[in-house]
Design a binder for these strands. Structure first.
Lengths: 145, 145
DNA sequence: CAATAGATTAGAATAATTCTAATGTAAGAA
DNA sequence: TTCTTACATTAGAATTATTCTAATCTATTG
């Protein structure tokens, strides 16, 4: 194993910088702070508000507007995926692969469903002039009676 | 065929009044105006804003807030169903039966997919303490390249 | 080491939705 | 019937979520 001499924690940061550059985005202070929270390895589902709060807790100073802007930039770059399960606010998912979701409204919580487990049959073909971009399944949960 | 003596157009209105009463809602001027637009027979997908505009065009005077309130009351009563396909605004669907949707973001348009056509296999069972309330499929469309 | 062009940020503005005080309405009492 | 009371309903005001754009920053070139 080769060492760069920097402490272990900075390796992911270097990866992140490369990832941002690869997506055509400048690795600014704000994007690095948010990227670290989002791409730490585990899949996450966040709202702009929640991520802003989390960033503030870790000492990052950036406006909520920047969090929104950044989430959209990441989404456009394919680093995130936006999921629509609620009229109130949007969720952003770090898992951009083929998968679906459970949604528990009472807990405002999303849970991934692996895409390869699910098979959907009988969908009509797309209307004329249109292509299917993606098929999303949301399973709404309620507390057991 | 029996006649009540009133003109033909008022028959649906009587049905509507009965329908509202049956749902535990008073048949107020505002609810009747919106109900007439919504429950005319054909399935519809509306936003609060669009319905408000449409009501205004037919001469009804009511605030946008009342449209929102009414749409939610109708939804709670089971007369409408809310669909989440976009972070911007909510759509309300007069078709409350089992079915799914195509969504064309570039046209902000919803198209029904009959529920009995679609079969979904391989869904995991609900997490402990939770029941499945509903499975929603949204097929996102993009203009053909 | 400027100067310039383009990218990025965040305060201000907007849009969507909800909240609550004011108003309307049904039902019973007199 | 009319008055009264309790509850349902409405809509202006307030709030929340999100976007817009002027100001700022940064990379690049002369």
């Amino acid at each position: 194993m080769r060492s760069t001499g920097s402490k272990a924690a900075s390796a992911p940061k270097l990866d992140l910088v490369a990832r941002l550059r690869g997506a055509g985005l400048r690795p600014t202070r704000q994007r690095i702070a948010l990227g670290r929270l989002l791409f730490s390895g585990i899949d996450r589902h966040v709202t702009a508000e929640a991520l802003h709060l989390e960033a503030a807790r870790t000492g990052a100073e950036l406006s909520l507007a920047t969090v929104y802007n950044t989430l959209h930039q990441f989404t456009t770059a394919g680093l995130l995926r936006q999921v629509f399960v609620d009229g109130e606010k949007s969720y952003f998912d770090t898992n951009t692969g083929d998968h679906h979701h459970f949604y528990a409204k009472d807990r405002e919580t999303l849970i991934d469903i692996p895409g390869d487990a699910v098979v959907i049959d009988g969908l009509p073909k797309a209307p004329a002039g249109m292509d299917i971009e993606r098929v999303e399944v949301v399973v709404r949960l309620k507390p057991k009676a």
